Amino acid sequence: MNKKKNTMLQLIESRKNKIEEALGNHASLNADKLIRVVSTDMRKNPKLGQCSPESILGAVIQAATVGLEPGGVLGHCYLVPYWNHKRQSLECQFLLGYRGMIKLARQSGEIANIEARVVYENDRFDICYGTESRIDHQPCLDGDPGLIKGVYGLAKLTSGEYYMEWMPLQKIEEIRTRSKSSNDGPWQTDYEEMAKKTVVRRMFKYLPVGDAEQKAAQKEEQDELGVSDPDIIESTGEVVNMSDHSQKQQVLTVNDLNKAL
């Protein structure tokens, strides 16, 4: 095991220039730091040491491209081992975290604030779409909040407009069960954070995020769910044309949200 781990680290070390190139202008990270993080993750999770070196390197380069540090207390992204049934071997998957998605969204400069919140059975919650779309969420502060009912995301654009997205638990579970790492990694250890990430990732399709961030989120989604068509909706498998603006949900005005909140 140690021999294979050393071989992986040697491979990654030999590709340091590629990692630096992928990092670009992300000054908060450098190749040496990423390599140290990978080495630490391998000690914490022995299964990573069993993954193919190529998949580990690919996941590291994906992390470098978006300037996010895997693991750690921030939970920006993760390196997750999964069993590739086709190749009959363990491979490493790059997986964005909720906070990583939030960071990517804010990098565009056009999103003033974005967040997702979990709704529980005993919360008071109401959502309405239409000319005066609104969300009314009052958490249960006393006693047992109950089971998770769903998750909603809310983004405020610098233009003053709002965009909201709601996903019931059933839809989140459909996505989790399709994930290649549904039974390992953050889906098991940080379910609520992954559920919130899933909602924010769906919002990316309609928000003014940068091309690089949009492509990063799209690639991560395709890798996680094992699909190659960017026009396949993750929750249903329905094929749609994402350039068709009729598919987009309504962006709310400040007045709409002021009435609701």
Rank of each mutant, 00 (worst) to 15 (best):
L9K: 02
Q10D: 12
L11G: 04
I12E: 00
S14Y: 07
K16T: 08
K18E: 01
I19M: 02
I19E: 02
E21H: 15
A22G: 06
G24K: 06
G24T: 03
S28G: 06
L29K: 07
N30F: 07
A31Q: 06
A31D: 08
D32F: 12
L34I: 00
V37E: 01
S39K: 09
D41P: 01
R43G: 10
P46R: 05
P46F: 02
P46V: 00
L48C: 07
G49D: 04
C51G: 01
C51A: 05
P53R: 00
E54A: 06
E54V: 05
S55F: 00
I56R: 00
I56Y: 00
G58N: 13
Q62G: 03
E69L: 08
E69P: 03
E69A: 04
P70K: 01
P70W: 03
G72A: 05
C77N: 05
P81A: 00
W83Q: 11
H85R: 13
R87I: 09
R87Y: 11
Q88W: 06
S89M: 09
L90T: 03
M101Q: 07
K103H: 10
L104N: 03
Q107D: 10
S108M: 01
S108F: 02
I111V: 10
A112M: 10
N113R: 12
I114F: 05
E115R: 05
A116L: 01
V118P: 01
E121Q: 15
D123L: 07
R124A: 14
F125N: 02
D126H: 15
C128N: 14
C128E: 13
C128S: 13
G130S: 02
E132D: 10
R134W: 06
R134G: 11
I135G: 11
P139A: 05
P145E: 06
G146C: 05
I148C: 09
G150Q: 06
G150D: 05
Y152P: 01
L154Y: 07
A155H: 04
T158D: 09
T158Q: 13
E161T: 09
Y162E: 15
Y162P: 15
E165N: 15
E165H: 11
M167K: 08
L169V: 12
K171C: 14
E173N: 09
I175P: 02
T177F: 04
R178M: 06
S179G: 08
S182R: 15
D184H: 14
G185M: 05
T189K: 05
Y191F: 15
E193Q: 11
K196E: 06
K197E: 05
R202Y: 07
R202C: 08
V209P: 11
V209G: 04
G210P: 12
D211M: 10
A212K: 09
E213A: 12
A217I: 04
Q218H: 05
E220L: 00
E224A: 08
L225K: 02
V227D: 09
V227N: 09
P230T: 02
P230A: 04
I233W: 10
E234P: 11
S235Y: 08
N241L: 07
N241D: 14
S243M: 11
D244F: 01
S246M: 10
Q247V: 14
K248Y: 15
K248I: 11
Q249T: 13
Q250E: 11
V254K: 14
N255T: 13
N255L: 14
N258P: 12
K259M: 14
A260Y: 12
L261F: 04
